[in-house]
Design a protein around this nucleic acid. Structure first.
Lengths: 105, 105
DNA sequence: TGAAATTATGTCATTTCTGACATATACTTA
DNA sequence: TAAGTATATGTCAGAAATGACATAATTTCA
């Protein structure tokens, strides 16, 4: 309930700084959280741009709507494995993933 | 026992083609396996270039020598999460990871 | 408005991953 | 050669992630 909590606070107008500031994360932990956040945001954008509902995507990757919701929310119960499998399933390439992880915008 | 098996066969001189050919993987599955393979190879290179033993790295990431060996062997029991955490722990940046995933080369 | 569709949240049994351990196999190098 | 160091492989109990479900909250749109 770490990154997700932050997101909820932000949504509620709290406007927290970085995840690393908010929680007290080591640089590596912060990078890891940042990574997951980027992937989850990318997943949401890609799904929406394809006009798929969470349920549609869930079916495609043999998961459930609730888990897709958690993926997109950056829920800590979701692994990188699942996020990346989902991204690949909706057409992202390895290069797309590289772009998401890298720091240029 | 997928990618690891292939690696063992290759090491034994079987010289198999791509993982996708060998097993019958969907493109997404093949990408996923490729991803893990790249990360595990990168981990091994980085560890060696730092002159760390597997036991040293294990200690640093609070794991065990046997698990590090499995990470580097591309063992299917190892998650992307663990691979990436390990890479971040020995100093890889998000950009480094992006380079590993991307297709240049 | 309100009903339908979509998304969010909580829970839980099952599956999968994990560190740890034992032990085998490979390297070094004396 | 042997002894020491490093790496590989197999196993397992405990931990973490998973899909599925119920249901709440939100959005969409006629």
């Amino acid at each position: 309930m770490e990154a997700a909590k932050r997101k909820r606070l932000e949504a509620a107008g709290w406007s927290v700084g970085s995840a690393a500031d908010f929680l007290k994360l080591s640089p590596e932990e912060a990078d890891f959280v940042e990574l997951k956040l980027r992937l989850s945001e990318s997943l949401k954008r890609r799904r929406q741009s394809k006009k798929l509902s969470q349920a549609d995507l869930a079916k495609k990757i043999k998961s459930s709507q609730s888990r897709v919701a958690k993926m997109e929310a950056g829920d800590p119960s979701v692994s990188l494995d699942l996020l990346i499998r989902a991204l690949l399933a909706i057409g992202a390439t390895r290069n797309d993933l590289a772009r998401v992880l890298g720091s240029r915008q």
